[in-house]
């Protein structure tokens, strides 16, 4: 069975990975199951300097989902390199750092520094975090801003570039096409959908930032549609995420065009979801006599017209 996926310089032994912000730096989940059995993990969004994250409420459950406003709390680039990478490499965990700097300059420095590290084959660029005032989604909601940003960044980094797209735009394919044109090796889609909650006792927003990011099974149909549309508009690989809870969901994303998938919110609920889906894809391929994972990727597009 062929399950390996190649995304630029990044080689994944299988298409299952964990989403940034839902697996920290791998240490906790690797105590529960062997993370080296996965394609890779996308570690928590990094800023140049450590970030304390947002004040006030940070997470709340919604119907079949969660709203979060963590605000990119992270250890910062230096501590990541010094204290987190050694653990990942010692445990043979394939990882992709996620760059979430304040400014274009910060992100360039983060991507440049990370590219110098042998075990960093690719960096995921977060231009879609809805929970920080500077940086984040500000880069990913205006095609011209994104283009200017990526054109400066791309020549400065030797690692492969994966651009994580925001669903909070009118036409996500414009952003995917822009990323491709600027030399991105892949896009991941999608980050959280912007949402909110109001405390009816006070009439005030539940989150200090008013808006927060919605994730979990509630957003899956929307995320799936966006992945399907992106696959039609670009040639670079799409990494699909958004509410994947089981093997069936992961297969759906791959049929819509995802070369790989990220498990996010469900790591919080069932920490072993990544392992279960990875094994589930094996079983699915065996049961359906699928020899090559590429036969699943984008299948729905190839069947178009066959009703």
């Amino acid at each position: 069975m062929k399950k390996e996926i190649k995304i630029g310089k990044l080689k994944l032994k299988n298409p299952v990975s964990l989403a940034s912000g839902t697996c920290a730096y791998g240490e906790e989940l690797n105590g529960i199951y062997d993370l080296s059995s996965l394609g890779c993990i996308f570690t928590k969004g990094l800023s140049l300097n450590p970030r304390a994250g947002n004040e006030g409420n940070r997470i709340v459950e919604t119907d079949s989902g969660i709203l979060n406003s963590i605000g990119l709390e992270n250890v910062g680039l230096e501590s990541f390199i010094k204290n987190k990478i050694p653990y990942l490499t010692e445990n043979s965990i394939t990882y992709v750092p996620n760059a979430a700097g304040h400014s274009i300059e910060d992100n360039i420095e983060i991507c440049e520094r990370l590219s110098e590290i042998d075990s960093v084959r690719a960096v995921e660029l977060n231009v879609s975090c809805p929970n920080v005032k500077a940086g984040g989604m500000a880069f990913g909601q205006n095609v011209k801003v994104l283009e200017k940003f990526l054109k400066q960044l791309r020549p400065r980094m030797s690692a492969s570039l994966i651009v994580k797209l925001s669903p909070n735009v009118t036409d996500i394919t414009e952003f995917a096409k822009c990323a491709e044109a600027c030399g991105a090796d892949a896009v991941s889609a999608v980050n959280t959908l912007q949402g909110m909650r109001i405390d009816i006792k006070t009439g005030k927003p539940y989150f200090n930032n008013t808006f927060a990011g919605l994730s979990g099974p509630a957003i899956k149909p929307v995320a799936l549609r966006l992945v399907y549309q992106i696959y039609q508009s670009v040639k670079i690989p799409v990494i699909g995420l958004g509410g994947i809870k089981d093997t069936g969901d992961a297969i759906e994303f791959m049929m819509a065009g995802a070369s790989a998938v990220q498990i996010g919110t469900m790591n919080l609920v069932y920490p072993e979801t990544g392992r279960i889906i990875s094994e589930g894809i094996d079983s699915y391929m065996k049961e359906n006599k699928i020899e090559d994972i590429n036969d699943i990727i984008g299948l729905t597009h190839r069947l178009k017209g066959e009703l």
Binding site: C23, L29, I32, L268
Partner: peptide, 14 residues
């Protein structure tokens, strides 16, 4: 506190 995951991965209960 309100916990997201309870196992230290989400930073929701900081």
């Amino acid at each position: 506190n309100y916990f997201g995951c309870g196992i230290g991965i989400c930073s929701g209960c900081t």
